[in-house]
Design a protein around this nucleic acid. Sequence first.
DNA 1: ACCCAGGTGGCCC
DNA 2: GGGCCACATGGG
Length: 211
Amino acid sequence: MNKRKTRNTLERIYRELKRKYGKPRGQWVMWCKRPKTEREREEVIIGAVLTQRTNWVNVKSALNNLKNAKVCSLKGIYKLNIEELSVLIKPSGFYQAKANYLFYLIDFILNNYSGLKKLKGINLKKLREQLLSLKGIGPETADSILLYALDKSVFVIDEYTRRLVKKRNLSENLSYTFLQKLFEENLKKDFRLYQDFHALIVMDGKNKTSK
DNA sequence: ACCCAGGTGGCCC
DNA sequence: GGGCCACATGGG
């Protein structure tokens, strides 16, 4: 597919989904909120790890456990030990692995940057590399953090995006880096657009009637 | 009793 | 670079 056609197709898909689903719902109400409070950005980061290969209902339950324990924040979690944390996030599945992943990530953020404000100022490419070097943070989690918690213009690729690309014959190559490039090179570089578009893709992907 | 869900790491080739 | 398996819960 040539560039012009790809651009038109992506624009059309966005408008189509936007018309169909309107404003973000569920999890996306907060993930697409602009601007976000610090607390909300921290919750997005925590949710980004917890939602790996897990449905949002289970993640919500884990987040509620953290909130009820008054530790749904980077510093709150950092004060816990792995055992306490893993019990709280148990409903999200893979809880022992995720407890460790969260610790590595929060340790990285707090010890290197003392919080999200400084993190936002780091060179994007370097920050992405650093996130990817952490155990438990792969491309989708890293980019979800960059896009939804830090308002960086990086397009998130996931299983739903792959299905959409396949269905619309946008590309044969379904590798992460290729698809991310495809979207980023053919959309206006705007984190608000990226946030909303990805949310719409997932909302549509979950909608059984649209398949 | 299955099958599925925004992934990732470790191993193997 | 890609294929396969482990990691675990809750809901259909």
